[in-house]
Simulated scan of single mutants.
Amino acid sequence: MSAPIAHGGGITAAAAAFGGKPEDWLDLSTGINPCPVDLPEIPARAWHRLPDRHLMDEARVAARNHYGSGEILPLPVPGTQSVIQLLPRLVRQGSKVVVTDDRVAVTDNRVAVVSPTYGEYARAFASAGFVVDAVGDIAAIGAEHRLAVVVNPNNPDGRAWPADVLLGLHDRMKAANGFLVVDEAFGDTDPTLSLAARAHELSNLVIFRSFGKFFGLAGLRLGFVIARDDILACFEDWLGPWAVSGPAQSLAASLLRSDVSAIRSRIDERCAGLHGALAAAGLRTAGGTALFSLVADARAGDIYTHLCRHHILVRKFDYAPDWLRFGLAPDPAADRRLGEALQRFER
């Protein structure tokens, strides 16, 4: 089993190492909207009863309209991490198994992940015995790959792939009897990048959408899968009954039906505040999305430690020691707190 990946959000561990109460830290280590939406009323029956089919149906219709997936009703899942771990099963469905001398070998076990990106994709496939090719460009994905993963826009550098490029990749994967997985976890801040509206035409496409990042409700552990019906049926079967709680589905149905323009405006305002704090400190932004900024600086390790001593947590990367990812602060006061801490850094 491969070692766990250190993700953002580890405030408890940071406080244990650098002091202070977790609640007093400023957590900029994730790409989550720091201004969670007001929660709509949740009917008491959603808490009292096992999640019934009508709750899922309502959430799926709301998700279809929000994501623009047309004929496809997106499947609610308990966070996209839950289905990332199921992807090896999807590929196994079409793999050829050869038995020789009482040994079982699975052929066609190579997958491609456009990298660097969210590390759980490579970990899930490597743990399942696949050969994982971390490719820097879509052009490097070939007929030998049973599945390709593209995070669009990408985490942590914000790299974005135009729809026509991804459509071409899908057709190449389909011709080789493979799948294309497009992770649109940060897609709500730029809907023009989404392939959701074309998904019903693309038989070998799987799209993952995150609910909690945009709405600021990551603790809800909710996501959606957009794909053809037989693929969605596989995921639903593998997850088992009642995978998504009734309250989560109720919230999704309400919030996905709401006007989200104010949420986008608030995120844009918070993004501008972060950019201002970074620019005032002389830090160069190397990429990002509306929900985070990636800074490239040779002093990244020292900056990280300095900020921790001021009880501000950002995201560092073991594979890129000159990178730091800064999430959004919740208000102008927090922007100033970050800016003042960065100004105190001894260059």
Rank of each mutant, 00 (worst) to 15 (best):
V111S: 06
A112S: 11
V114L: 11
S115P: 00
S115G: 00
E120C: 05
A122T: 08
A124L: 13
A124M: 13
A124W: 08
F125R: 12
F125W: 09
S127H: 10
G129K: 14
G129E: 10
V132F: 08
V132P: 08
A134P: 03
G136S: 11
I138Y: 06
A139D: 13
A140P: 00
G142C: 11
E144M: 09
R146G: 15
R146W: 00
A148Y: 10
V150H: 01
N152G: 07
P153H: 09
D157C: 07
D157M: 08
R159I: 05
A160W: 11
A160H: 09
A160V: 15
W161N: 07
P162Y: 03
P162A: 13
A163V: 14
A163K: 15
D164H: 12
D164Y: 08
L167H: 06
L167W: 01
G168A: 11
G168W: 08
G168N: 13
L169P: 06
L169C: 10
M173K: 07
K174H: 15
G178K: 11
F179T: 07
V181Y: 00
E184S: 01
F186T: 01
G187M: 01
G187K: 00
D188K: 06
D188Q: 13
D188I: 04
D190M: 05
D190F: 00
D190S: 11
P191L: 00
T192R: 11
L193T: 03
L193I: 09
A196V: 03
A197D: 11
A197Q: 09
A197S: 15
A197V: 07
R198V: 05
R198Q: 14
R198P: 06
A199E: 03
A199L: 10
E201I: 02
L202Y: 01
L202Q: 10
L202E: 04
N204W: 04
L205Y: 04
V206G: 03
F208C: 07
F208G: 01
R209E: 13
S210H: 10
